[in-house]
């Protein structure tokens, strides 16, 4: 979790790493990221963690899908997969063309990148994913992005019996399973520890998956279908 002293602490995935550095992908979406964009080189931030679990690499030919700010966790996976010489197709889904990031970075790693700008219902990205899954014999699918898109991906993977893991976003405040903000129905366990990466099978056990998330107050926020 990235700490902006005096402002807030928010969960982020590591987007890439080298021997001496690591990177995060941040999209300006609210008060916290607005403040984060104001910082200058040399200013100090804090980080806690890493918390939770990560993806399990499996198979030789992989489909990775990253939507919006959910991109980061899968770019990190793409880097790890390429280091092991695995074949990676990558779908970058974004709302607008200027939100397509990491494309050339991924291509330099030897990743085959497809991108789609999506309308609110992610239809164009979804169509591309369906086509790719039809035309290729993927061993595994990994995805992070808008939950309604994740829900479709999980159903597709289960139908086609492809190994699949997704990273689910929930309001996380403490990251250590104490505050209960990210408790998921009906299991009542905290996603900051049990996730954020879960298998497609596990996702189906979460009854709130694809339906609602809880806000900072604990109030339910229903996804618009």
């Amino acid at each position: 979790m990235l700490w902006l002293p005096g402002v807030d602490l928010k969960p982020f995935s590591v987007a890439w790493q080298s021997k001496k550095q690591f990177g995060l992908a941040v999209i300006k979406v609210g008060p916290y990221t607005t403040e984060l964009f104001k910082i200058k080189t040399g200013e100090r931030l804090g980080f806690n963690g890493p918390y939770g679990n990560g993806y399990n690499l499996q198979g030789k030919k992989l489909l990775l899908i990253g939507g919006g700010s959910g991109l980061a966790s899968v770019t990190f996976l793409a880097q790890a997969a390429r280091e092991q010489g695995l074949a990676v197709d990558f779908v970058l889904a974004a709302k607008t063309a200027d939100k397509i990031i990491y494309q050339s970075w991924l291509e330099k790693l030897g990743v085959k990148v497809y991108h789609r700008f999506q309308n609110q219902k992610y239809e164009r990205a979804w169509q591309l994913i369906e086509d790719l899954a039809e035309q290729n014999n993927y061993d595994a699918i990994y995805a992070c992005g808008p939950e309604l898109l994740l829900e479709k991906i999980v159903d597709l993977a289960l139908l086609k019996k492809i190994f699949c893991e997704i990273s689910i976003e929930r309001y996380m405040k403490c990251g250590i399973g104490i505050c209960g903000s990210c408790a998921i129905d009906p299991l009542g366990i905290c996603l900051c520890q049990a996730g954020p990466v879960v298998s497609a099978e596990f996702a189906k056990k979460i009854t709130e998956f694809g339906k609602f998330e809880r806000l900072a107050s604990g109030e339910k926020h229903y996804f618009k279908k």
Binding site: G180, A183, L187, G188, I189, C190
Partner: peptide, 13 residues
């Protein structure tokens, strides 16, 4: 104050 945001987390306890 610990867990207890949701009914499911109370069931889990």
């Amino acid at each position: 104050g610990v867990l207890g945001v949701t009914k499911a987390s109370l069931i889990n306890v």
